[in-house]
Simulated scan of single mutants.
Amino acid sequence: MIRTATPDDVPVLRTMIRELAEYEKALDEARATEEQLTEALFGSRPAAYAHIAQDDATGEPVGFALWFLNFSTWRGVQGIYLEDLYVRPERRGAGHGKALLTELARICVERGYERLEWSVLDWNEPSIRFYRALGARPQDEWTVYRLTEEPLRKLGTGTGTGTGAGAV
């Protein structure tokens, strides 16, 4: 069963986010607090949304999808960017991940969104096989760039060095 997350789910969401970060070998980067997640998901201006996969028999949360809206200037419509998709290892293979993605695809179709996108680590072969089996295709010609911490602060405060900007 897939359902929309509620504020009561925040503690288990945070736990599963940390489990995912550990699997992705980046536990030290998973610093979001329950308060931050509550505000992001259920504050006056939600920045993200979440769905919970639960065991049909027990109702126990076994996975989640956390996502937000993006916008395609080429298509002229919003889409969904899936930030995290996680199913606890002992519950994988029972259809929870597919059910979560099916729900997000349903939302896209219902609302007229034309894209459901996400990133996957290049070493995560089980996930890559799963996504390909659903018909998803990698966008090999695109490379993700990210500014965080000191480089972000430098650029945001105008104290960056400005070297190597190229044609931008």
Rank of each mutant, 00 (worst) to 15 (best):
D9H: 11
P11C: 10
V12T: 14
V12M: 07
L13S: 02
L13D: 02
R14G: 03
T15D: 14
T15K: 15
T15S: 13
M16G: 01
I17P: 01
I17A: 10
I17N: 07
R18Y: 06
L20K: 04
A21F: 12
A21Y: 12
E22N: 13
E24W: 06
K25L: 12
K25W: 10
L27H: 13
L27N: 08
A30N: 12
A30M: 15
A32G: 12
A32P: 06
T33A: 05
E34Y: 14
E35C: 02
E35N: 11
Q36W: 11
Q36C: 04
Q36V: 10
Q36N: 09
L37R: 05
L37Y: 08
L37C: 09
L37D: 04
L37F: 13
T38V: 01
E39A: 13
L41A: 05
L41Y: 03
F42Q: 07
F42N: 05
S44R: 15
S44F: 04
A47H: 13
A48W: 00
A48Q: 13
A50M: 09
I52V: 12
A53S: 12
A53Y: 02
A53T: 06
Q54A: 12
D55V: 02
D56W: 07
D56R: 10
A57R: 14
G59Y: 09
G59N: 10
E60M: 07
V62S: 00
V62K: 01
G63V: 00
G63E: 00
G63W: 00
W67E: 01
L69C: 05
L69K: 13
N70H: 15
N70L: 07
T73Y: 08
W74D: 06
R75K: 15
G76K: 14
Q78L: 01
Q78F: 11
G79C: 11
G79F: 12
L82H: 08
L82I: 07
L82D: 11
E83M: 06
D84H: 13
D84N: 15
D84F: 10
L85Q: 02
Y86S: 00
V87R: 01
P89Q: 06
P89N: 04
E90A: 14
R91G: 00
G93Q: 10
G93A: 08
G93K: 11
A94Q: 13
G95D: 09
H96A: 04
G97D: 03
A99P: 09
T102G: 13
T102A: 14
E103Y: 08
L104G: 03
L104N: 03
L104H: 04
A105S: 15
A105M: 08
R106T: 14
I107E: 07
I107W: 03
C108F: 05
C108G: 07
V109E: 11
V109C: 04
E110H: 14
R111Q: 15
R111T: 07
G112V: 06
G112H: 11
G112K: 09
G112Q: 06
Y113D: 00
Y113K: 00
E114D: 13
E114A: 13
E114V: 05
R115L: 13
E117I: 09
E117Q: 15
W118I: 03
S119R: 13
S119I: 12
V120H: 02
V120E: 03
L121H: 15
E125T: 15
P126I: 04
S127K: 06
S127V: 12
S127W: 07
I128K: 07
I128W: 09
I128Y: 08
R129M: 05
L134T: 09
A136R: 06
A136V: 07
R137P: 01
R137Y: 03
P138R: 07
P138S: 11
D140V: 03
